[in-house]
Amino acid sequence: MHHSTTGEKALNHLNQIILFIIAATMLFPFLYIFSVSFSSVTDVLENDILLWPKEWVTDAYTYILGSDRFLHSLLVTVYITLVGTIVNLLFTSTMAYALTKRIPGQRAILFLVLFTLLFSAGMIPTYMVVKATGLLNTFWALILPVAISPYNLIIMRQFFLSIPEELSEAALMDGANDLQIFTKIILPLSKPSLAAFGLFYAVGHWNNYFSGILYLNDPAKWPIQVILRQIVIVNEPNAALGGHELMEVLPPPETVQMAAILLATIPILIVYPFLQKHFAKGVMLGSVKG
């Protein structure tokens, strides 16, 4: 059994201290947001808040959760995230699997995929394509233009290449076709990879606000991040939440902003624990075989 030397123990303690400081630094903004969102008007105006509310007040949450527009935008974001992630994984996995086979034009297609990693069309050409295809002011404008991430596609293809070829050959000998091999052998073995990339795609959809501003003209279709932008950056919480009749006395804009940030962040954070066991393994799988 290996016994740690004094130097190794000191180094471990130093690493623990450094990691604790980093974790505390990352946790502090969340604690501050939480504290401000539950603080009273007096404490906010006097800036007498650090890590814990002196007086617990829920006016900001009552104000936000009483807004139909906020709750509707939250449901819109959940819909876009779920449908978008399913589309992402479907398109990425099928194209990645197809590119593991010797098909006509395989090298040219791979070159085009790699080319998009270095160069993109830009905002205006992309907007023109979205408009020309009739996707403007629809939820699909936020999903289809980002249906496949070239980076994720390459990594997933490398993972598929790492799966032993003998499994597919044995299935072929038993009479299975490519679709059956993909759905009954490749995908079940790819759960860690699919979970990791699904999380990447889901977080991207959840945090995306610019596409909503660019492609959605109807405020009723705005996702939560666009509403959050109106509340925090534009500093128009009442206009963003839809009306002046939510409460007789409006809470301070600062508490509304922090409460909105917290409410918009919690749902996507809840997803992490369910995918954590697959996450670290899935990220590394694509590097097994070059």
Results as ranks from 00 to 15, higher is better:
P53W: 09
L250C: 05
A24P: 00
L114C: 15
P219V: 01
P125L: 03
F210G: 13
L167F: 12
T85S: 06
S190Y: 04
I109D: 06
W56L: 15
F210M: 12
I227P: 05
Q16D: 14
L75S: 12
I213S: 04
M26A: 12
N235C: 12
K289N: 09
F38M: 04
T5W: 09
V288Y: 12
V146D: 10
A24T: 09
G122Y: 12
T85V: 08
K54I: 03
P164K: 08
I270M: 03
V234T: 15
F38T: 04
A10I: 03
I163F: 01
D218H: 03
L241S: 08
S190W: 06
S168T: 11
I213F: 08
S190P: 08
T42E: 14
S73F: 12
F139M: 13
N207C: 07
I80H: 06
S35D: 01
L65E: 02
S35P: 03
G212I: 08
N177R: 06
H13V: 15
K191I: 08
F139N: 15
Q276W: 02
L27A: 12
L110D: 09
A23Y: 03
V283R: 02
L135A: 11
E245Y: 13
M1I: 14
L161K: 15
L112F: 14
I266D: 07
V36M: 01
V83K: 10
G242F: 09
T58R: 14
T133F: 15
M123V: 15
Y209T: 09
Y61A: 01
F160T: 05
I49C: 11
N217G: 13
Q16M: 13
G290N: 06
I124P: 10
Q230T: 11
N207K: 10
L74H: 10
L82E: 06
N152F: 09
Q230M: 11
M284A: 15
E46C: 13
V76Y: 00
D174V: 00
F111M: 13
T133C: 09
Y127T: 07
L246A: 06
S73L: 02
S287F: 14
G122E: 04
A24S: 06
S120V: 10
T6L: 15
T183D: 14
A220H: 07
V57E: 11
G286L: 01
S37W: 07
I227L: 08
F279N: 02
S162V: 08
S287T: 14
A176F: 10
V83E: 11
N177F: 00
V57Q: 04
I64A: 03
N217S: 15
Q257Y: 06
V41I: 13
G243H: 01
T5K: 04
F160C: 03
F70E: 00
P237A: 02
W52Q: 02
N47F: 08
L144W: 04
H13T: 13
N235T: 12
I186A: 08
N152I: 10
N137I: 05
L110K: 00
F28K: 09
I64F: 02
H3W: 14
L65D: 06
D48C: 07
T138L: 03
P192W: 04
D59I: 05
L142R: 08
G84C: 00
L187I: 13
V57A: 05
V271W: 06
L167N: 05
K277H: 09
L118A: 14
E55Q: 12
H72W: 14
I86G: 14
T92S: 11
W206H: 08
